[in-house]
Design a protein around this nucleic acid. Structure first.
Lengths: 136, 136
DNA sequence: CTAGTAACTTGCAAAATGCAAGTAACAAAC
DNA sequence: GTTTGTTACTTGCATTTTGCAAGTTACTAG
């Protein structure tokens, strides 16, 4: 009966996915997390140079959306490690489609990690479980 | 030697694809064209109600990027039918990944064309060749 | 107490978005 | 032949988002 969720634009799955990650930065953050980056500093150091205020805002949004989760890996000072949730890892398929389209349709583009080798597959997540939570 | 293309942010295929279609509207236009819509009016009539100035701007950008092409299907007054190029049709894989992620991770979302049936596959392009050039 | 570092936050200027209204070219009605 | 209607845009402008730079907080090292 209560299939009356409020969608921002329409009930279309594409439209609603775009409302979550359809901007120029969110999926790059997801990409970096898939590649094993974990901290704010590591994410900020990516070649695209995401502005730090945007990075902070995106981390909050992605966490609110259940795509990433933040866990303190250190108490004093408190430092957070960001990792993808299952939902976030599922975005890997979207990333893969984007990377394929880019490589085939935008000359000169590469997959991060390889420099020009068209053979190498993009590295898998490899999210190191670094015991982030001594929180109890 | 001249692998020195100028990329806006980095050489990453994902980043450059997002620079082309990484906004809230472009991929919805591609979706509609995949579904067989062809005219400005049909595109504007989609459930998301894209603002008309944005639609006009996106059509220009997508055409400049070689993702769509405009062909006059009538002379007086001149009216254009928009269709996906091969490059644009290749974005279908990205759309498919987005639609799958959305349906599995955002409750209530659907694929346009089906109402709630989880079995139905999203309809293929079905671009009707409507003889766009019956000028005489 | 001064320097350095990681992780954010804040202050704007500039750009993108979105709503509404306006314009242009024509067909049909009157 | 002037008004009405339709399609395809265009323009104006307020609001929102982005991006650059600088500031702040919480520490460690010296």
């Amino acid at each position: 009966m209560n299939t009356r969720e409020k969608f921002a634009r329409s009930a279309c799955a594409v439209a609603n996915t775009l409302d979550l990650v359809g901007d120029k930065w969110s999926l790059l953050v997801v990409r970096d997390l898939l590649y094993g980056k974990r901290t704010y500093g590591e994410l900020a150091a990516s070649p695209e140079h995401i502005p730090t205020n945007i990075l902070a805002e995106r981390l909050k949004r992605l966490e609110a959306a259940g795509i990433i989760s933040a866990a303190a890996y250190q108490e004093r000072p408190v430092r957070y490690a960001y990792t993808l949730t299952k939902k976030g890892r599922a975005l890997g398929d979207v990333l893969l489609a984007l990377v394929r389209w880019g490589r085939e349709n935008i000359p000169g583009t590469v997959v991060l990690g390889e420099t020009a080798a068209p053979d190498a597959a993009p590295p898998r997540a490899a999210v190191r479980r670094r015991r982030p939570g001594t929180t109890g």
